[in-house]
Design a binder for these strands. Structure first.
Lengths: 250, 250
DNA sequence: CGAAGACTTGACTAAGGTCAAGTCGGGTGG
DNA sequence: CCACCCGACTTGACCTTAGTCAAGTCTTCG
């Protein structure tokens, strides 16, 4: 279980399986070349593995290449709040790289692969590839926008609205980068994860999810959730969905 | 009340009253010169004025020069969630400038002055001043970190912990840029603002604030809050405070 | 002097938390 | 092989926190 993770390089950026997806914007050759040189290896982990720890200094900078993860913070007495979920293409550890200290942790939800970047070369990225610098800002702003919506949810939506929003949100995001061969998309989370995201107790979370399941909007599997009716979830949440358009991939 | 706001330029960046504060990092001459040319005017507003509106496209990019403001989102039925407060030096409207659409609104809490930037020249900033580009990312990451903490608060702190955290947080931030001549620092918010920030009803917010006042940790004035004992507020919230260090000012 | 907005307070209600006691399935040591 | 354990999920009973309703006071501003 706790075997040392591999950090050998497997996938060259030029053959990145993510980049061809319509979801991502096209890069110029020099950009792609730089990103490729920026990447120094890969981190392959099992579910439950800690990628980054709250409070740690000089953390690495990653991009999630495949799999699922989540960001979270905890209070001293152990209360945990999940801040957001990480999907393929998402930058991981930018706060640590830019501000110096990590104030949240990151944990894998499924088997996952991260591209490892040399944090020390980040200034070089801004200097020689302004477009990529802009892209980093773009990704940070996008994260900020997701957090805004989560904040609205926690502050002003009821339990069932929150649950509906969360599952619709994750489902829409996952569709973009995990348009699975298998039609079925399973979100690899437990009800404890949902509870810690919605700011609810596990008992109330269970009862809320059962209502959604009773209405055939979702189906709960062991440690996984299947969304059956995104449209109706969005309606319950009063949420209009993710903006269209392509995004950068670093 | 609804007179047309002035947008005439009053303060040259070279004589910016904010920049000399120890809170902000020093800029090089070329950087300062660029920022100065980047600024096209000022927006002077009264309390309650709407600076940016949710859903609007092509919004402007601003920096708050003086005064207080806040970012918020609303649900269709009018429920409002305040996302964060804006203090002097904070960038306003970056999401709109980078992602294209504004998904939150911004409103002034006090008389306020904003520096207006030419959004169209943002790419030029990244191209010719990588250091400033990095600074923009730095500011975006900082906002993200504040949102993370707010999310933890809404999801996992009790009413009194949330209130204590919020007031300690605002107080610490304000100290940095509003180290007022007058020793007293008054936060210009109503209890309705506090309620909409904490995700609580106004009645419960009132009762919670009275508890803090009864313990002499705060004093409530008409439309304003005075923090009397930050240390104890931080203790109640289980919050260790803002990181030290200087920040960029664009 | 009246109106309106900010703040208070008490009485009652409801959403959500806590406690407790399950079921079910997969993994493991004897 | 099988008993046992453990973690994920359920469910009912009861409790606490926070929401709603209602009725104030006080101050400011026309």
């Amino acid at each position: 279980m706790t075997k040392a993770p591999s950090t050998a390089r497997q996938v060259p950026c030029e053959q990145c399986p993510l980049r061809p997806l319509p979801h991502f914007r096209e890069f110029t050759d020099p950009e792609l070349k730089f990103v490729s040189s920026f990447k120094t290896g890969e981190l392959v982990v099992e579910p439950g593995a800690a990628i980054l720890i709250e409070g740690a200094h000089s953390a690495h900078l990653f991009t999630l290449l495949s799999g699922w993860a989540f960001r979270y913070k905890t209070l001293e007495d152990g209360r945990r709040q999940i801040l957001n979920y990480l999907l393929p293409g998402d930058l991981v550890g930018l706060q640590g790289s830019v501000l110096g200290e990590m104030q949240h942790s990151v944990e894998a939800l499924s088997p996952a692969v991260f591209c490892i970047f040399q944090r020390s070369r980040l200034p070089q990225l801004f200097r020689h590839h302004p477009g990529l610098g802009f892209d980093v800002t773009w990704l940070a702003s996008r994260e900020e926008r997701m957090l805004d919506e989560n904040l609205l949810s926690l502050g002003r939506r009821t339990a069932i609205e929150r649950a509906a929003y969360l599952l619709a949100f994750i489902h829409e995001r996952a569709r973009a980068t995990m348009a699975r061969q298998t039609g079925r998309l399973l979100i690899p989370i437990t009800q404890q994860h949902v509870a810690d995201t919605l700011g609810l107790s596990i008992v109330h979370t269970n009862k809320t999810l059962r209502k959604l399941a009773a209405a055939s909007l979702i189906r709960w599997h062991d440690r996984a959730c299947e969304v059956l009716d995104v449209a109706k979830l969005k309606e319950i949440a009063g949420w209009s969905g993710l903006p269209e358009g392509t995004r950068p991939l670093i």
